[in-house]
Design a protein around this nucleic acid. Sequence first.
DNA 1: TTCTCTGGTTACTGC
DNA 2: AACCAGAGAA
Length: 760
Amino acid sequence: MSQLLLGGGGQGPEPSYLQGLNPPQRKAVEAIEGPLLILAGAGSGKTRVLTRRIAHMLDRGIPPWRILAVTFTNKAAGEMKERVAALVGPERAKKLTVSTFHSACVRILRQDIKALGYSNQFVIYDDDDQLRLLKAISKEQNLDPKRFPPRGLRGIIDRAKNKLQGPQDVAAENDRRIVAVFEAYEERLKEANAVDFNDIINKVVDLYEGFPAILEKWQGRYQYLLIDEYQDTNAAQYKLVNLLAARHRNLAVVGDDDQSIYSFRGADITNILSFERDFPDAVVVMLEQNYRSTSRILQAAMAVVKRNPGRKDKELWTDATEGKPLELIVGRDEDDEASKVAERIRVGLRQGRQAADFAVIYRTNARSRVFEQAFRRAGIPHVLVGTRRFYERREVKDILAYLKLALNPSDEMGFLRVVNVPRRGIGPKTIELVRELARAQGSSMVEAARTKSLGSGKVNGSLGGFVRLIDQLADALDRSLPGELVELAAKESGYLELLEAEDTDEARGRIENIQALAADAASQEFSLDEGLDGSDRRVVMQAFLDRATLSGQADELPDEGGRVTLMTAHLAKGLEYPVVFVAGLVEGSFPLTRDPSEQAIEEERRLTYVAFTRAQEELVLTRAMMRMQYGQGMMRCTPSRFLDEVPRELIRGYERSAPKVRPPSVSSQESRDRMKAFLDRHRVEKKPKVEAAAGPRVTRTPSSPDDFKVGVRVLHPELGDGVIRNVSGSRSEPRLTIEFGGMRRKTLFARYASLEIIES
DNA sequence: TTCTCTGGTTACTGC
DNA sequence: AACCAGAGAA
């Protein structure tokens, strides 16, 4: 059957997967042996080439398990698997390894990390665990958190590790106290049988460099490597790839230097720029024909990215029509910008578009809120990709910490996280005692907590209860499935009970999240990766926990059901939509200019390029004239420099608009007044100004949460008159954002604020 | 010794 | 939203 479909060789008809390819695409598909560099511009049919290349390899008799395809996100991995399955059938596709660097490396480590002195049950510390550990270490070493902020320390450590460096390598350019923290950090990870995200890659490199037999084993296993998004690999990943590929040299890398957008994570664009030097015999293929976007969209994207020096000068071109002009939407503020986008979408819907045809792309997740609100108001179905990721919610992490601790009792951060959650009367003093004991006897904290002679009888009882809970979970690990284990942990720990008793909207939301986690865990059993022994319950659980730690969000592909997609530019890479809105094109937001270096701006430019090239037919650029900055008040925005870099004749109406108005310089008094008048005008329109009450005022004490509504005037004992601008939190415990004179805002709990309501 | 409340601060991008 | 420090209550 597949023989018929795929054609075999010789005189038969050409296999279907070779049909409909342009010459460079075909060259890339057919170059199976040896090093291969594919420079694939946006929309040049990269995924199509990769999936067909894999089909071709399988057809040539290469066993699927010899192929390792590395993608940058779980989402991309899932998509590639699906598309290969469509070409070669699910049976063979299942035996391929398609995953992210991190997932692939975790699997390698779970098998071989023993050689480095860790147990196979090692835990993975995410950035949050990392930060907690660094805070603990800083405290022990009496570092002033002002002078050495933990986040800064983490940054230094991450940057070093991205380059495969350890404490000694950074000793020269750093304070010795920082180096000491780094050293302690590494020790503590090892003691806790834990690795951080960087280690996931680095430990595999250590393994390969230190144990030739292990390297050979994996070289033998994966004889054909395919690395997608090569421009976003860091030094450690680069080293890893080169080690693995050294023997068979069947290394295909795919990338686009114009789409390198992860330097904050150590991505090194020179990895792809120097591939030809690393492999002088490499076949190089340039995919420059874009099949995705209209000519105008492409021109706009190219015009922006071309400002970057030092790029491989490839010229994307298209056969497509000019298409419609780009559109520019300017809102008074961000709310208005979002409303106008919603309005524009409604127009599109009336003209026959589906909601799923639209995507809104912004720079930071924080921007998603205004769009969500606007779309809800306008009744536009939408789906958010990414945001506060599910597995990062506190309750989810707490429950997972219980289970990780049951699997790996050495996990110190896990112990600290849940030993007193829910409250068991185990405070810092007791924890300190347990830690000292653990140190003294060289055991885990869980072990130390078993000791009966710590503190008072009450404390011992609580600790004993906690230890019994962990034992109970550990015991259940061998008998129960992930879904059951999540439920067990939530129930037996008292976590659920606590939330139920709380009876607030927030608590109910958390319960829902735990239920969702249980459901998600239950599905793990059915989606085991190849090569895992499903009969070993611990392995199943471990696989689930790994996935939870490594994947931002369950890899839900946005459903076909017809919803507008909202996401960041980073998450948008690799996706395409008929109509794309690139939102928030103002200085400080897109580009983000916290780091004003030329390099950073170049990356922002590439990010803009990525965002623009998601659009197939229509591209709408949007910005606001003003925006709230950190709740500090309205600030006038400067249009994004990238807007200026788009040739204006590509934009509808732009060429006819008045000469460009630059924001008034703050130094001039006149323009300051003008700006003030401008701000006032708009403020009045949207939000009535707080007026000083004339004469004696009538106030009353609020009697129910319903008294607090947006727009209500209140009197604060210290801050005076204010107007409620936002009500958040739960009904029983509302949190109010109140605007006092001018633009000063404050957020506080209504319960404690002794507010009076001013009767009008 | 632990818990609870309060106010302040701080937030980019993601495996 | 989440985390922290500090004060005061239990």
